[in-house]
Nucleic acid binder design. Structure first.
Lengths: 189, 189
DNA sequence: ATTTTTTTTTAATCTAGATTAAGAATTGAA
DNA sequence: TTCAATTCTTAATCTAGATTAAAAAAAAAT
């Protein structure tokens, strides 16, 4: 389990064996059943989760009860409610499991305290956050400038694995359309 | 000029006088005329810019020639094409000045090399990037779950200063509607 | 295996917001 | 100032995608 995370970190900022040991002590393993929540809207997000196996999602529920997915996290991705996690304030996102999922949990206080002991980890998270921001910007531009059909096609090429593992209505929620309309788009091949 | 940046950094990770001196040597001052480009789509973004005075914007141009604004940067904000700046690849964004604007430029190579000498600066940028990602996530959720009228109202309360300094069509572009439709929304008060 | 729940499809109708086109108002440049 | 360019408004028409409703299909749970 922890080995997956260490490999991921080593791919960005190689650690010494001692540092690897410290990382292993910082995180806590957890298995989430399908539909089990990691974080609920209104609470303060205590943890950021590294997905070892399975898939999580974060999403908001609007005033009409519709869900809007912000992020999918398949294996080797981090997920949290960044706003809540960083500001230590309650926020609007839920995080739950789309499938049975194994995660490693890192609390914000652990994370922040480790940055002084292992600056490499501050670098690791700095780089991950830069990448996430670049990806988020790209998504925003897509959303502003492309019609639904092309957003769907791009989703398929971007997340080929997810297409076959998560329900189609989740894809619709992520790309910002209704499941009925996605069904219609797919019917046109 | 540089003093504005140093104050901004000190608000997040206080620097020693020596460190302040190093920062001052790293950045380059520049004044951009209204409509002057800092970065053009298709080129690699060499610089991240800290706005001292005025306002920049980043935007993409779609296949029909329409502009879609990703970010405004008024005083005390950083702006760049994060994807291009970080990956050192050409990207799809333009950055130009909405008004005459004074900026401080920091090259990626300078930035990265300074992280080893002054880890506080890596922390500074890590925190800024976390905040930017949280804000970007919030915008995505708004875009997925709120109608145009409410997105406009939120924009007005979020950026009260901008409303009176930038053209209304730029607001429309940012919130993802046409200028004609924004005009119609405003007519309903 | 059977039942229940969830997901997907289809189709008719509706609407938020786009498009097109002109004129009016602002702004900026010379 | 005056002229040219840009921005804003109004109004008619159009459309991508939403809504509503039901039935069909698939997946979970028992």
């Amino acid at each position: 389990m922890v080995q997956n995370l260490i490999q991921h970190i080593n791919g960005i900022t190689p650690l010494t064996e001692e540092e690897e040991g410290i990382v292993a002590e910082l995180v806590r393993e957890k298995t989430l059943a399908r539909k089990q929540f990691l974080h609920r809207a209104g609470e303060v997000a205590q943890y950021s989760a590294f997905v070892v196996e399975g898939c999580l999602r974060s999403y908001a529920v609007d005033r009409n009860g519709f869900e809007h997915i912000l992020q999918f996290a398949p294996a080797n991705w981090w997920i949290s409610d960044m706003y809540s996690f960083v500001k230590n304030k309650p926020s609007e996102l839920n995080v739950d499991a789309l499938l049975e999922t194994k995660v490693l949990l890192l609390s914000r206080s652990c994370q922040v305290s480790i940055f002084d002991r292992i600056p490499k980890l501050e670098r690791y998270f700095r780089i991950l956050t830069e990448n996430a921001l670049a990806a988020s910007n790209h998504r925003t531009i897509n959303y502003l400038s492309l019609p639904a059909k092309i957003r769907y096609e791009k989703f398929c090429t971007m997340y080929p694995t997810l297409i076959n593992t998560i329900p189609q209505k989740s894809v619709a929620s992520y790309i910002g359309i209704t499941p009925e309309f996605l069904s219609k788009l797919r019917a046109e091949f």
